[in-house]
Structures are given as C-alpha cells and as structure tokens.
Write a protein that binds this DNA or RNA. Structure first.
Length: 826
RNA sequence: GGGGAAGUGUCGGAACUGGCAGACGAGCAUGACUUAGGAUCAUGUGCCGAAAGGCGUGGGGGUUCAAAUCCCCCCUUCCCCA
C-alpha cells in the first residue's frame, strides 16, 4: 500500500521546490498573451485571517487557470503599509511605526506563502518604503504642476483636550476616542486634488466589465444634478452682497418658497443674524458642529433650526421670506443654501410643520381642490399660485421658469455634484510627506524632483495625544527655500493612504525601476489590469480614486489607457457564527491551524466550495472535512495505481453483472470531456463551487470504474491525467505530487489546460421526461438522436402514461428537444 | 426614506435561455471492514402516506402546455446610500 496523503509533507516539499526553481517568476514575454490578475493588497494589520484567504485563494486559482491556458500571468502581491494603526501602536506600545509595520509584514508574508499562490515575490511592493513613497510624492508634484492639487480650507475633527486632529474613526459618537472630550470642528488649510474636474468622466464606465452595483454606487457618489441657480434679493444693512443664490432641481416650485435655510457653517449666518437672535443662533451653530454629517442628514432625526431674524425677497412674487439656519443643509453641497418649499419637499415639509411655517401648494396633485396637504407632494402636477405660470404642467414649468429667470438675470441653469474634491492632507506621521515648502518670500514652493524623497524622520517622538510628531521635529520642519535659499518651513501633513493605493498596480509592472515610478514599456505590456478582485467595501473610495488617478496620468501623457481595471469582481464576506469577523468580537479565524492540520489545498478548496464567490458564506469547521475526505479519495484513487490490461471487446463478470468494455470506455471518455467542459466554463465565470462539485462527481465516477476494473489502463490514464490537470489550480500541491507519482515530468503547473472535444462530450442517451398536463409521469431513456416524431410516439406508448390518458383527449403535444414531451389532455 | 441583493431539505448550497426541484458537500441513520480512525467502503435521507399517490422553492395572486426562474402585492434578512 502506498503512503497516506500527508498534506504537510507534500506542501512543504513543493513550496520549497517551486521557490528554488523560481517557477512563478514572471518576465515580459511578447510571444504570449498577457494576463494581469490583481487581488487588492492587504493592509499590514498583523495577521492574515480567513477573510484574506477568501480574497486570495480563489483569485490565485483563476490566475493559475489562465497560466495553464497559455497566458503570461502577472499575479503580484504587496502591502498597503501606511496608516493610522501603526501610529496608535507607537503610542500605546512604544514601538516605532516602521518596526511595527515591518514585523507585521514578516508575519503576513509567511502566512501568505502558505497559501501556495503563484505570487512572484520579487515584485513585492511596500507603500511605506522610501523607494515607493518617493514616487507617491513625485505624483503629487505632477498633479500640482497640472493644476490638480491645490490648497484650501476644510474642517477637521478637533479634540480640544488633546489639542489634535482626529480621523473620523477616532470620533466615537461625537467624542474623542482617547480622552472622551467633546469633539469640535476647526478649519485648516489643507491639500486637495481636483477630482471634480473628472466628475462627468468618472460617472461613465465605458468599455469596462464591472458589476452594475458598483457602477451605480459610483454614479451616486458623483451625484450629478441638473437644475437652476436662483437669486433671492438681499437688502441688509452692513452686508455688501445684494443676493443669496440657491441651487434647486425644482425651479417650478419657486412660488412655493416660504422660508430659506442656511447651513450652520455658511459665512452669511454671522453677518445676517439680528442682535436679538444672536445668542440662540450661536448656540445652535456650536451644537451642530459637534454632529457628524450622517447624523445631520438622518431622516430619523427631527429637523430643527433657528430663525436668524433676517429676510430675503423672492423676486418672482416680491414676497419677504424669513431666513433660518438648520443643520440638514450642508455647506459643501450646492451653495449651502436651500429654498424651503414645504409643499413639495419632504424635509421642508417636516421643518415647516414643526415651526408652523406656511405650506403653500404650487404644484397641484391631480384632482386637488385646494385642501391642505397631509404630506409633501413631490410628483409632477399642474402649476397653481404661480402667477403667469398657472396652468402649466410642472415639467414644462421647470423650463419656463428657468427661461424667465435667465431672461431677467435672476438666475441661470446650473449643474452641481455631490462629489467634492479629494482632501488628501492628514495631520499624521505615518504616511508619505507632502513634498511642499512654505517660503516667507516665494510662498508655496514644490520640493524639486531631484530632492525626492522627502524622508520621514526616524527619530520621531510620539505623543500620547496622537498629535503628529512632524510638527515638532525641528530638522524636518526647518529647511531652505529651493527657489531663493532663505530659511523656510516644510509642509508637515502627510498624504491620505488612498493616494498610495491609487498607483500600486502600476508599480508591480516594474518594481525595480529607480529613475521613474514605472517603466513605460513594461506598463504598456501589463496594464490595464485584466481582472481585479477584492471586497465591495472599496466600491467607492479606492476604486474611484484609482480611476481618477489614471485619468489624470493619461492627460499628462504618462499612460495610454483610460481605465485601470478592465474587469472587476467583488467577492462576498466570510462570516463566523452569523457575524462578520472582527478583532473586537473576538471571532477572528486564523487559517494557520487548519493549514497545518488539513493542508493549504484543503483550505483553498473549502473556501471556494461553501458558496458562490460573490456571495460569501459561513466558515464552518465541519464542512472542511468533506474536502479532506475528497482529497483522500483522490489520493487513494491515483496513488494506488491501476493495472487493468484489457484488449478488444470482452465481457467482464463482476458482482454477477456483465460490463461491455467498449461502452464503459466510451462512457469514461465522455465524462472526462464533459468534466473538462464544465470545469473550464465554471472557471471562466469564477463559479468555483460548482467547478468543485463537478470534480467531485468525476472522482466518484472514477472510483466506481476502478472498483469494477472496467476499462483499459490507457483510458484510465487519460482520465486520471485530466483529473490532476483540472485539479492543479485548486490544489496545486496535491496535483503536483500525484503528477510526479504517476510518472510525469515536473511541473504540472507548466502543462497546458486540457481541451475537450465536443464530439466526445456528446451524450449518447438522454432521459426523456414525459409529462401529462405539466405533471411528471414517466422518464424514458432514449437515444440522443431521437426525432420529434419518435419522441411523441415513445411518450404516447409509455405504459405509465397510458393510465393518465384513459378516456381523455390529447389536444396538444409540447416537445422540447432532448428534454421532454408534455401531453396536454382534456 | 431611497437603491441593490437575497429568501430552496436538518445545514452550506445546485438547477443552462421558463422544461426532471434538491447536483455536490455537511449532518444524521443503518450496515461492512478493522493494525479502533475525526480513516475507508456500502446503503438510505424534502414532507405526508402502508402503498397508490399527493404536497413542496418566504406568503398571496397572475401569465404559461409548463414557474425556484417572468409579472403584481405583501413579509423577512443583509448590504450600500441619504
């Protein structure tokens, strides 16, 4: 008897061999079509859990499949290595972010290697190394030169106790995570990327195969609305402006305006508030600054606000309209002012009800007789109470009023976006320093390219408050102006880590390039990414920023494609005990123990088997043994050998049954080819679970054949070779071992993917289903070549069916070729 | 509140373009072998029924010769957005 299947042994052996031979080393090869398969690189959190495997194992299987199909496959791996947790570790445990990160990478790389993937480790990329962030900084300079980077004011979360800026995730229900103080807002000068310049193009996903869901989310993120900007007359002592401009998509409702709402941050609030309202308004504004945007916009919460004691005039009807301040209006959207039309907007309706403001119907619902509305009517209707526009359908009213406003110079058609420019400044240490210098004479001066990288100082001092050490690092901050040479100060903000991940996929093409971020030639060979896979949580931010980045680079002439990722696929989430895995819940499953016990091959296969990849599923210990058993069966099937030498057409007696050898061989060959077809098709479509089911069925069939000893050794060999080749992407170690044991030469992973012959895969016999009035009554095995007339005949002659036809008249016969006959009787 | 996805045995799931519901696996049950193992093999396993047969894909209605699949209404869960 041969040895037992010992995954630990063979996985160690082959991983070592593959590494020694550089089996998965990738070079550009113009003789082969290229395939760039990319899995989102992990953040250096410290441990690889089963969720990471769920992202990486199936994508590796697909990449291996493409490789066997003859593609030159690039399937790289690296680490997203900048970010806040490293800094928190520095503060709480006194370990430097660099060391913390590198230790985590060591551990994660070891775990990643146990997957047995085809990663070419010589192309590994870490975003936190100077060789990498030098180019992140270089891109910043290019964006600055192109006018896509600029400085502007933006609010940050500010903890008054720690005297520091907090990231959104450090603010827990309005309070500082560290000290518990109430978090306020504070305006800071910060750096932005002008992503809004590409708003329209980013809404389009031309020529790329992405899930509809993600495309919709990105379009909503851009949030384009087409409407009209309307001017309301302002006459206020001490205020220079003579108007307040409001953006609306519903100019047809302008006669229904009964109040005006300013965002609490709006500069006019302070100027317009009357003395008797000042205290109340100031308190309200202060309170609203402690709320997050999500809270402010929640429809659950009651809308509240304060009248500021000032008015504007609605030019269309000359009415005086009171101005309120309310936090359901955001400064960043539109003009930061909303015209309150309670009759035709739900939020305005709720607001008006609460403060007893008039609700005037100007778009009549069908059949409206002047009664009061129970709720806001937001649908189109007929215009009323709108002066000269009365009687118009409101859709036409939108155009008519817009025309009228433009004619009078009281407004103009406009487009606004929900999308705001990308704020990339972070008041943090552990990120790529923004390469800018502030000179007292020259102003803002970019660091010259040849001075890059601007290195993060190693001897940083981490304060318990979380304040950035860069601000107090004299050697870092103090420099000279590259233009005029006088003493100057460096920018101390670092870049958002999404900046690092916006171009890492370019770096993999030529990670060793040291005179440019990438080698243009090699990028032209590999990019764009053919298949990008990762979690749907990156549907907007990362994927959106990366697309912006590529479009900006394209316009600079640095790349020659429009979209970075040709096909996108989002895998689902692995849950444990019906909950998402998380450190705080303490339900994180680490693959290591399963790998050492059952083998990486089994873990890979099990993750793919539980559910369709896009769906995700529950990690359940008991299920994985099914995969282990299957691998054991494969092992016993193959490693046990097969010796039958059968020639010619003979009948073999086994268990008293006669087996027609020729037929058995034909059937085996048919199933072999059908399995190739099924597995290939499933892999193309990333349907790993059904692929495995097909392979299991094939295995079970082979076990029966072996027991019966019903085929010749040559037929058997073809079937076994095929099984191993089809199994190679999923269980690379097991397949390699058995490939060697069956006398083939190393390596199975350099073999071609098997091809099926349609002729051999064709069924000889089919099961014809016979229905009477749509109910299943009989199944008859018939030759696949049967004609319609023969099938009808066979159906009518079936003994079981005849009983149901007794005394009935057949009025119709439906025939579905190769499937069924339905007899319709009365 | 808006948008999206989903709901199928005890469990994970399968079912091409409307055509045999429950593939494959887990679990469970019975048996075999035994160098006792979380091993391997065999058989069974949607529900009701002794059987014939009937019922059955969240609930209700519809279209169709035929619906898990298409349409309408409702319920539930999850995700995203506001």
């Amino acid at each position: 008897m041969v040895d037992k299947y010992d995954p630990q042994e063979i996985e160690r052996k082959w991983q070592q061999r593959w590494a020694e031979d550089g089996l998965y080393k990738v070079t550009e090869d113009s003789a082969k079509p290229k395939w760039y398969a990319l899995t989102m690189f992990p953040y250096t959190s410290g441990d690889l859990h089963i969720g990471h495997w769920y992202a990486m194992a199936p994508s590796d299987v697909h990449a291996r499949f493409k490789r066997m199909q003859g593609y030159n496959v690039l399937h790289p791996m690296g680490f997203d290595a900048f970010g806040l947790p490293a800094e928190n570790a520095a503060i709480s445990r006194g370990i430097h972010p660099f060391n913390w990160t590198m230790q985590n990478i060591e551990n994660m790389r070891r775990q990643l290697k146990s997957i047995g993937a085809i990663y070419d480790w010589s192309r590994e990329v870490f975003t936190c190394l100077p060789e990498y962030y030098k180019w992140t900084q270089w891109f910043f300079l290019k964006l600055y030169e192109s006018g896509l980077a600029y400085r502007g004011k933006a609010p940050v979360n500010w903890c008054p106790h720690c005297q520091t800026v907090l990231a959104n995730e450090q603010v827990v229900e309005g309070f500082c995570e560290r000290c518990g103080a109430a978090v306020g807002r504070r305006d800071l000068e910060q750096w932005f990327f002008r992503i809004t310049k590409y708003a329209d193009e980013l809404m389009e996903h031309n020529g790329i195969d992405w899930p509809e869901r993600i495309k919709t989310m990105q379009r909503n993120w851009v949030g384009k609305s087409v409407g009209t900007e309307i001017s309301f007359a302002l006459d206020h002592p001490g205020v220079d402006g003579r108007e307040i401009r409001v953006f609306t998509t519903r100019p047809d409702t302008v006669f229904g305006v009964t109040f005006m709402v300013l965002a609490p941050e709006h500069p006019l609030v302070a100027e317009l508030t009357s003395p008797d309202k000042r205290a109340e308004v100031e308190e309200y504004v202060a309170r609203s600054q402690r709320q997050t945007e999500i809270e402010r916009l929640s429809t659950e919460r009651e809308k509240d606000g304060v009248f500021i004691g000032a008015y504007v005039v609605n030019r269309l009807n000359g009415e005086r309209v009171p101005i309120w301040v309310a936090d359901y209006v955001l400064l960043g959207y539109g003009t930061g002012v909303v015209m309150g039309v309670p009759a035709h907007d739900e939020r305005d309706f709720a607001f008006a009800k609460r403060y007893n403001l008039p609700i005037r119907v100007v778009v009549a619902p069908p059949g409206w007789r002047g009664e009061e509305l129970e709720e806001a009517y937001t649908e189109p209707g007929t215009m009323v109470n709108s002066g000269q526009f009365d009687g118009l359908p409101s859709r036409q009213g939108i155009e008519a009023i817009s025309d009228f406003l433009e004619e009078k110079g009281w407004g103009k058609r406009a487009v606004t976006y929900r999308l705001r420019d990308w704020l990339i400044s972070r008041q943090r240490y552990w990120g790529a320093p923004i390469p800018m210098i502030y000179c007292p004479d020259c102003g803002i001066v970019p660091v010259p390219e040849e001075d890059l990288p601007v290195l993060l100082p190693e001897d940083a001092e981490f304060k318990p408050t979380g304040e950035s050490p860069l601000k107090y690092h004299e050697q870092f901050v103090n420099t000279t102006c590259p233009r005029c040479g006088v003493p100057a100060k460096r920018e101390t903000d670092t870049m958002d880590t999404f900046m690092c991940s916006s171009w890492y996929f370019l770096r993999y093409a030529s990670p060793d390039c040291d005179n440019a971020p990438f080698d243009a030639e090699r990028v032209r060979y590999w990019l764009p990414v053919d298949l990008y896979t990762g979690g749907a949580e990156h549907a907007v931010m990362h994927l959106f920023y990366a697309r912006f980045f590529i479009k900006a680079l394209r316009d600079m002439g640095l790349v020659d494609f429009d979209e970075p990722f040709s096909r996108l696929f989002n895998q689902g989430v692995i849950i444990v005990e019906r909950q998402k895995m998380s450190k705080s819940r303490g339900n994180v499953i680490t693959p290591d123990e399963y790998v050492s016990e059952l083998g990486a091959d089994a873990v890979r296969a099990y993750l793919m088997f539980v559910a369709p990849w896009e769906q995700g599923g529950e990690w359940d210990d008991s299920g994985i043994s099914g995969i282990s058993r299957w691998f054991n069966r494969v092992w016993n099937l193959v490693a046990g050998g097969y010796e039958q030498k059968i020639t010619g057409l003979v009948l073999k007696r086994l268990k008293g049954e006669q087996i027609d050898i020729e037929q058995a061989e034909r059937q085996l060959s048919r199933l072999t080819h059908q399995t190739i077809r099924k597995v290939t098709d499933d892999l193309e479509r990333l349907r790993f679970n059904t692929m495995l089911a097909a392979l299991m069925e094939f295995t079970n069939y082979l076990a029966r054949v072996k027991e019966e000893g019903a085929v010749d050794v040559s037929g058997w060999k073809e079937a076994i070779d095929t099984l191993l080749l089809l199994l190679a992407p999923t269980a690379p170690h097991l397949a390699e071992e058995l490939w060697q044991q069956t006398g083939h030469s190393y390596s199975i992973h350099n073999q071609s993917w098997p091809k099926w012959a349609e002729e051999l895969a064709k069924d000889e016999e089919i099961t014809l289903v016979v229905q009477v009035n749509g109910k299943l009554r009989d199944r008859i095995v018939v030759p696949a070549s049967m004609t319609e007339a023969e099938a009808r005949q066979a159906a009518l002659e079936s003994q079981r069916v005849k009983a149901y036809l007794e005394g009935k008249e057949v009025i119709n016969i439906v025939y579905v070729p190769g499937r069924l006959v339905n007899l319709v009787v009365r």
